[in-house]
Amino acid sequence: MNVELDKVKSFVDKHACDPSALIAILQDIQAEYNYLPRRALLVLSQMIKTSMVDIIGVATFYSAFSLEPRGEHTATVCMGTACHVRGGPKILEEFERNLGIESGHTTEDKQFSLETVACLGCCAIGPVVVVDGDYHAQVSIRKVEPILRKYQTKEKKDDAPN
């Protein structure tokens, strides 16, 4: 993905080159590119006069930021206590098998990223899976594939076996 310098600059200007707005600027960049491109961070570092070490420190601290390109859709499997005892790990395994990736990574076609979360606060409807902000309640292994198919793009659906 090409990083447009003007775009990054406009994000920084929006916050008046304020170093304390670092997280807000990173959020804007993350929302635009779905990850934090290296060139964008270099430009950002020069514009707000903050060292690369600090920016990387913040970017790696929060799980909302990613230094690697993320997929179009993000599937988040809850691993909280309630979801865990109701089979969260098995559902994660099913996702991993289905997508062919481990949690924390992105499929090669950049369709899905798989993540885990410690708790989403809606333990009553567990096990919970969130895809692009949509909550899927009481997920079972059987429901995993339909959920994924729902988000796969049209041509991908045609390519998929069975």
């Binding site: 290296r38 060292s51 690369m52 070490v53 600090d54 990387i56 420190g57 790696t60 601290f61 230094l67």
Partner: peptide, 25 residues
């Protein structure tokens, strides 16, 4: 210089240069 800093958090925390590369700083 500010060439190295803490990265990640929890049990993944580590001290390194940005992108784990030799840095200009």
């Amino acid at each position: 210089a500010k060439a190295i800093g803490f990265q990640n958090r929890g049990f993944k925390r580590k001290i390194s240069t940005p992108f784990d590369e030799r840095s200009y700083e």
